[in-house]
C-alpha cells in the first residue's frame, strides 16, 4: 500500500484565460447541492454562490472594459475564519491543508463569515426545499445543509477524499490532475488549474510560480492557496 502523503491543495486562476462566463458557478452549485434562493433573496444579497465572478469596470467609454475575477474560498494557510469559530466547525485540515466547513458541527454564529476578508462564506438563511422530483439530482456525496449553517467552497473535498480512497484501494499514488473540483472540470476556458502545491512538478505548482502570479489581499497574511495569474496587457483582465 502506498504511504499516504499529506497534500497541499492549490488552485490557479488564470485571469488571462477567464472570460467571466460563470460556468464555474453552475458546476459548483450542481456538484455541491447549493440551493437557489430566488429573485428577492438574491436581490437582498443572500445568494449562496460558493464561487462568484467579481466584475469591475475599468476605464471610461469607449475604452471601458470589465475585469473578471472569480473568487471562491481561498483556503488560506492562515485562515481568519478558523480561530474565531467557537466549535471548530471552521477548521484546518492537517491532511489536505484546506479549510473545512464541518456543517454538522456548525452552530451558526456567522463570525467566520464576518471575519473572512474574501466574503467567501455564505449562510443558509432558511431551509431551501426542492420540489419533487428535483431532489433526485442532489449529490449524495455532499451533505445537504439545513437552515442556520455556514457553508463555503471546499475545493470539492468529497472528490479529494474519493480520489484518495480510490488511489489507496488501487495501491498507487495520486496522479497530478486526477482530482479536479467541479469548477475546474467545467471551466470552458481552462482558466482554472487544480493540484497539489507540495509537489513542485505538478502543473498547478508550475503555474503558481508564474511571473504573473498574485494573491488576493496578500497584505493580510492569510497565505491563500488560490493563486491568480494577472491578465496580460491593460485589457482582458
Amino acid at each position: 500500500m502506498a504511504e499516504e502523503r499529506p497534500a497541499k491543495w492549490g488552485l490557479v486562476v488564470d485571469l488571462d484565460r477567464c472570460t467571466g462566463c460563470n460556468a464555474c458557478i453552475a458546476a459548483c452549485s450542481m456538484e455541491n447541492n447549493v440551493p437557489f434562493v430566488g429573485e428577492d433573496e438574491v436581490a437582498y444579497g443572500r445568494a449562496l454562490y460558493w464561487i462568484r465572478t467579481q466584475r469591475y469596470w475599468e476605464g471610461e467609454y469607449p475604452a471601458v472594459t470589465p475585469t473578471f475575477q472569480p473568487v471562491m474560498c481561498q483556503q488560506c494557510g492562515n485562515a481568519p475564519c478558523e480561530p474565531v469559530c467557537p466549535v471548530y466547525a471552521s477548521v484546518h485540515s492537517e491532511e489536505e491543508q484546506i479549510n473545512l466547513a464541518v456543517y454538522n458541527r456548525c452552530v451558526g454564529t456567522r463570525y467566520c463569515a464576518n471575519n473572512c476578508p474574501y466574503f467567501a462564506r455564505v449562510f443558509n438563511w432558511f431551509d431551501y426545499e426542492l420540489p419533487e422530483p428535483m431532489r433526485s439530482y442532489l449529490n449524495p456525496d455532499v451533505t445537504v445543509r439545513r437552515r442556520g449553517v455556514m457553508e463555503k467552497c471546499t475545493f470539492c473535498v468529497q472528490r479529494i477524499v474519493r480520489g484518495r480512497q480510490k488511489a489507496r484501494a488501487e495501491g498507487r499514488e495520486l496522479r497530478d490532475g486526477e482530482i479536479q473540483p467541479a469548477c475546474v472540470q467545467a471551466c470552458p476556458a481552462e482558466a482554472l488549474v487544480f493540484g497539489d502545491l507540495s509537489d513542485p512538478e505538478s502543473r498547478v505548482s508550475q503555474l503558481a510560480r508564474s511571473q504573473r502570479r498574485y494573491h488576493l489581499l496578500e497584505e493580510l497574511g492569510t497565505l491563500p492557496r488560490v493563486t491568480y495569474l494577472k491578465g496580460v496587457g491593460n485589457h482582458g483582465g
Binding site: 437582498y44 466574503f119 462564506r121 438563511w125 437552515r147
Partner: peptide
C-alpha cells in the same frame, strides 16, 4: 423554526 433569514442580516453583514 423558519430560519435566521427572518432577520435582515445578509452577506456580508452577518451580524
Amino acid at each position: 423554526l423558519t430560519g435566521m433569514g427572518l432577520a435582515g442580516i445578509r452577506r456580508p453583514v452577518f451580524w
